[in-house]
Simulated assay, not measured.
Amino acid sequence: MSEAELHLIRSRLTAGPKHKAARGEPRQGLPVGLDYDEDDKVHITADEAVREAIATVFRPFDELGSARQTLISLREDHLKLPRRRNIETGHMG
């Protein structure tokens, strides 16, 4: 493929999201613990188990003051954290 063809393909792939952003419609994937409501506004999830898991992460962070030390502490406790399922592929991540 020529450079011109690659440039054209690349620009077509990125045009859709750019147009949505220009119209103020970008809807991005949110981190676990945040959801969109009916009006497309971001809010904290109603799922109490997810809310508690997030609080469980922040408690040691408040005590330890370091993300690395928090991660080490959570691994030592064998804590499993929730992850958002990828709707398109069905995979976690």
Rank of each mutant, 00 (worst) to 15 (best):
M1K: 14
S2I: 14
A4P: 11
A4N: 13
E5D: 11
E5Y: 12
L6E: 09
H7G: 06
L8S: 12
L8D: 13
L13G: 02
T14N: 08
T14M: 08
A15V: 09
K18E: 13
H19Q: 14
K20D: 00
K20F: 00
A21D: 12
A22I: 07
A22Y: 11
R23S: 06
R23L: 15
P26W: 00
R27C: 02
Q28N: 11
Q28I: 06
G29P: 11
P31N: 02
V32K: 04
V32P: 06
V32N: 01
G33S: 00
G33N: 07
G33V: 10
G33R: 05
L34F: 14
L34T: 03
D35N: 12
Y36E: 06
D39K: 13
D39E: 12
D40S: 07
K41H: 11
V42N: 09
V42C: 05
H43F: 14
A46F: 06
E48C: 01
A49V: 06
A49C: 00
A49K: 15
R51P: 09
E52T: 06
E52A: 11
A53W: 00
A53F: 00
I54N: 04
T56L: 09
F58C: 02
R59G: 02
P60Y: 07
P60R: 08
P60V: 07
F61T: 10
D62P: 01
D62K: 07
D62L: 07
E63W: 01
E63V: 11
E63T: 14
L64S: 11
S66K: 09
S66E: 09
R68W: 12
Q69Y: 12
T70H: 07
L71I: 10
I72F: 03
I72D: 15
R75N: 08
E76T: 09
E76P: 01
D77G: 03
H78I: 01
H78E: 07
H78R: 08
H78L: 05
L79M: 04
K80F: 00
K80N: 03
L81S: 03
R84N: 14
R85C: 06
N86R: 14
I87H: 06
E88K: 14
E88H: 12
T89F: 11
G90F: 11
G90R: 12
G90K: 08
M92T: 07
G93L: 11
G93E: 06
G93Y: 09
